[in-house]
């Protein structure tokens, strides 16, 4: 059953993107289709889980068809079907999981259950082969984690957020600034035009690789509250720059300390927040003189997509780590 250069059909529906990709040999994208629902959720100011599930349901076969067509492969040429099992929104995950099970069964293909974060990490494998040990910083709306990998498929979480994920703090601060959803890119854009004048707190959490962003978030919200009460004009650019500066300083510094302590050969930055311009620049600057290779995926692979799920699934395919037809979505799936 196993072969090299295998072709995997991968499905990702953990949040608000219905995504299907066809990946060859773990690092070659034959197709990568993403149907985003961003505009649909914009009017609600955030992702509404039931709305997301309904849209996944309407899109799923269309997106699968487009992915196969663009890859110019038929179901018969597919060697395995992979799908995000979690974490994510349960109703959204269920659409992908049940679609994957149905087509795997219909064509008697092995089924592979992939962890969403493993996917984000493996998005980097399209650029270069992994060199172990490596450190991965995963930052997104739901995650802020430092993960050490000694080999393929092995994940040691050495640090994680104790409260809000970085992306979550971004969304909340954006809301307080009355910026449209999604807030992250808006803050990044404003921050480019402002300066760190407010000097918000940095949560260093001594002797730990954990993160905490809720104190910072509260400080920003309190500051805005004060300004509004005094009827003072709010310099959105400087607030954004000060907030972002505080987040980035902690992320970059802690990542650097961990990378040095674990003597890793590569640093991988992954997850939605890795699209942040300032994070990319600061991280490259910090590691400029070190021997550690910094890998950040191109923008289209930072946000949720199925190519990354196919890349992670390739490792599981070669380890023969297959799921059976009773596979279920797991919104709290652990790495």
């Amino acid at each position: 059953m196993k072969k090299t250069n295998e072709i995997i059909l991968a499905i990702e529906t953990s949040c608000d993107e219905t995504a299907v990709a066809v990946i060859q040999g773990g690092n070659k994208i034959l197709s990568n289709v993403v149907a985003t629902q961003m505009e649909i959720h914009q009017k609600f100011g955030g992702v509404v889980p039931e709305v997301a599930s309904r849209h996944h349901m309407e899109q799923i076969t269309l997106v699968m068809e487009q992915a196969l067509e663009e890859a110019k492969v038929t179901m018969e040429q597919i060697d395995a079907v992979a799908v995000t099992k979690g974490p994510g929104l349960v109703g959204a995950l269920l659409v992908g999981v049940n679609a994957a099970k149905a087509i795997a069964f219909a064509h008697q293909k092995p089924l592979i259950a992939v962890h969403h974060i493993a996917g984000h990490i493996y998005a980097n494998r399209f650029q270069a082969e992994f060199d172990f040990p490596l450190l991965s910083l995963v930052v997104s709306g739901g995650h802020s984690e430092l993960i050490v990998m000694d080999e393929h498929g092995s994940y040691d979480i050495i640090g994680e957020t104790r409260d809000d994920a970085a992306g979550e703090a971004y969304d909340k601060v954006a809301k307080a600034l009355k910026l449209p959803y999604p807030g992250g890119p808006q803050i990044d854009r404003l921050a480019q035009q402002g300066e760190d004048t407010y000097n918000f707190p940095r949560a260093w959490l001594q002797d730990s690789y954990d993160f905490s962003f809720s104190g910072l978030k509260t400080a920003v919200i309190n500051q805005l509250h004060k300004l509004r009460q005094k009827d003072q004009t709010i310099d959105q650019e400087n607030i954004a720059a000060s907030f972002q500066s505080s987040v980035m300083e902690v992320l970059v510094e802690k990542t650097y300390q961990a990378a040095t302590a674990y003597e890793v050969k590569q640093l991988i930055v992954a997850g939605g927040v890795s699209a942040n311009k300032e994070l990319r620049e600061r991280m490259e600057e910090k590691f400029k003189d070190s021997s550690i290779q910094v890998m950040i995926p191109p923008l289209y692979l930072c946000t949720d997509n199925a190519a990354m799920i196919g890349a992670a699934a390739s490792i599981q395919y070669h380890q023969e780590d297959f799921a059976d037809l009773s596979l279920n979505a797991n919104p709290g799936f652990m790495l």
Partner: peptide, 19 residues
């Protein structure tokens, strides 16, 4: 049930589409 329906309909339509 919304979830129940989506499980049945996703499965049925994925089978039908792929076959």
């Amino acid at each position: 049930s919304y979830t129940g329906l989506r499980i049945g309909v996703t499965t049925a339509k994925s089978l039908a589409w792929s076959l």
